[in-house]
């Protein structure tokens, strides 16, 4: 991965971006753009960069100023889908898990559905999408998230997304009379706990150990005929 000089002329080959290659057969725009085009592009670039930066900084925690500037570019974030925070794994959180109990109309035992499933058939990306869905349900069921959603009904942690998901389960599982949704958190094990347990049992620590799964928290009951 070092710069290497070729034997023909002054051409150099480096793995990193080289100075622009001006060639006799270069395209039309190699000669340079007209001034008005550069000005127009410059204006667009400034607006875009400001929108991207403010979109990332305007997400909590943020200052009043950052939020106000971000609000100026709501149109840009809506049109171009670039208002992201990019704060990946700022603190690795526990993983939300959604448990659905499907009550059968014929009185047979409930059917349990877990999102994300323990074993998702197909590519890993499919499981990743399910994890995102569980995250979204978890986020939408948090009291602070629902604050101000006056039209919400039902249980204390019910959200439109939870209702929509329950409705989907009712439709795709004929014979279901109602759905109860729960949220659970899959905790990250403490390294000391892992070492102790490994010493005790002599076995590798199970990442699905019961101690890592919190008690399911009820979100709401959703009768299928009411959805």
């Amino acid at each position: 991965m070092t710069r290497k000089s070729g034997s023909r002329g002054s051409e150099t080959i480096a793995p990193i971006e080289a100075p622009p290659i001006r060639r006799a057969d270069a395209g039309d725009d190699a000669a340079g753009w007209p001034g008005w085009a550069k000005t127009a592009v410059t204006v667009l670039l400034c607006v875009h960069v400001a929108a991207v930066v403010s979109g990332a900084l305007g997400v909590p925690p943020s200052s009043e100023l950052e939020r106000r500037v971000a609000d100026l570019f709501t149109w840009h974030h809506g049109l171009l889908d670039q208002g992201y925070a990019y704060r990946y794994y700022a603190e690795p959180p526990p993983t939300p898990v959604v448990l659905a109990a499907l009550h059968r109309a014929d009185g047979s035992p409930d059917v349990e559905i877990r999102i994300p499933e323990r074993e998702v058939a197909g590519p890993p990306m499919r499981a990743q999408r399910q994890l995102a869905l569980a995250n979204a349900l978890f986020a939408s069921a948090r009291p602070e998230h629902r604050h101000g959603e006056g039209e919400e009904e039902g249980g204390p942690a019910e959200s439109w997304l939870a209702r929509s998901y329950a409705s989907y389960l009712c439709r795709t599982h004929p014979g279901t009379s109602g759905v109860t949704l729960y949220l659970q958190q899959h905790l990250i094990p403490d390294p000391r706990q892992v070492l102790e347990k490994t010493r005790e049992t002599g076995l590798r620590f199970d990442l699905f150990d019961e101690s890592l799964l919190t008690t399911p928290r009820w979100i709401g009951d959703f009768p299928c005929d009411g959805l």
Partner: peptide, 19 residues
Amino acid sequence: WGTMTAGEFVAINFTSLAA
């Protein structure tokens, strides 16, 4: 450690790294 032992995410058990 938090990302390598998040049970729902990982495909390989890396808990031996606790040592």
